[in-house]
């Protein structure tokens, strides 16, 4: 009940910030549109080598706009700056709900709003550019797709929360964050589908958790995988989620000792 109240309170704040929320959405929207235009001009009606048609590419980047706003969590800044460095974390320690879930309830309404913007954008662009998003998933695939999205969201959230927790040790981690952001963008498929990478880069990408946050949810929606592969993806997502959760636990337990010892 308490969690629900926190959730609703943040939903309310969102309405007050309608303009601000829209602008947050504009960036991935613009990136996607221009990349679509780029590929239109580049492909000129032909297909790429690995069988990605123009309509595949358009669908990919449209979905990327939705996926990157919904699935890319931004919780690390609030955690690092306000909670840890300014000491606001103290008030959370007294609450009966764990910090993880409090942050989850704070963050999710904003992400859902971005998702709504994304879906509206996609609907409008199908009117403008024609119907590129063919929803051709069977019922089983749809259920698996939803699981992939949910798992991706949790991996992303846990990863970003853990990143924020590094503020227990580092005063300024901008260099580290930037390096990881760059890697996440490249290996998450934000530039172009991983399938179109040079081979050696593809292999490296699949060894990181990032494709499992953005790339696979998008391509699963595009019905690029058989059921077996979908199950494999979910398997890997559980693997990465477990690693993130363990990492999160460790950082939290060690970090909270430093925090409370410092008496902030």
């Amino acid at each position: 009940m308490r969690a629900l109240r926190i959730f609703l309170l943040h939903c309310q704040r969102i309405f007050e910030y309608r303009l601000k929320s829209f602008i947050w959405f504009l960036a991935p929207l613009m990136n996607s549109i221009f990349l679509i235009v780029f590929w239109r001009a580049a492909l000129n009606g032909k297909s790429t080598v690995t069988g990605w048609t123009m309509s595949d590419m358009t669908a990919y980047y449209l979905l990327l706009a939705v996926a990157s706003t919904f699935l890319n969590s931004h919780v690390e800044d609030g955690v690092a700056d306000e909670d840890i460095r300014q000491g606001d974390l103290a008030r959370f320690l007294l609450k009966p709900i764990s910090y993880y879930w409090i942050k989850f309830c704070e963050e999710t309404p904003y992400r859902l709003l971005q998702c709504v913007y994304g879906i509206i954008f996609v609907l409008i662009s199908t009117l403008v550019w024609g119907n590129f998003l063919k929803f051709s998933l069977s019922i089983e695939n749809t259920i698996l797709f939803i699981m992939i999205v949910v798992l991706a969201y949790f991996i992303s959230f846990t990863y970003k929360l853990s990143l924020g927790l590094t503020a227990f040790w580092f005063k300024d981690a901008k260099g580290l964050h930037s390096a990881l952001d760059v890697v996440a963008l490249i290996f998450g498929g934000a530039i172009l589908p991983i399938q179109l990478f040079p081979d050696y880069l593809q292999k490296i990408a699949y060894l990181t958790p990032f494709p499992y946050i953005i790339y696979y949810p998008i391509t699963a929606f595009q019905n690029k995988y058989s059921i077996n592969i979908l199950f494999q993806i979910i398997g890997f997502q559980f693997f990465w989620l477990s690693i993130m959760l363990i990492f999160n636990r460790v950082l939290w337990n060690k970090g909270i000792k430093i925090f409370t010892a410092a008496g902030r």
Partner: peptide, 22 residues
């Protein structure tokens, strides 16, 4: 820290265009 950050983003742009024109 900011120096590292700006180097990372520079590298990102270079990788970006190289991937797109690969």
């Amino acid at each position: 820290s900011h120096l590292i950050s700006s180097c990372c983003w520079t590298l990102f742009q270079i990788i970006w265009i190289n991937l797109l024109t690969y």
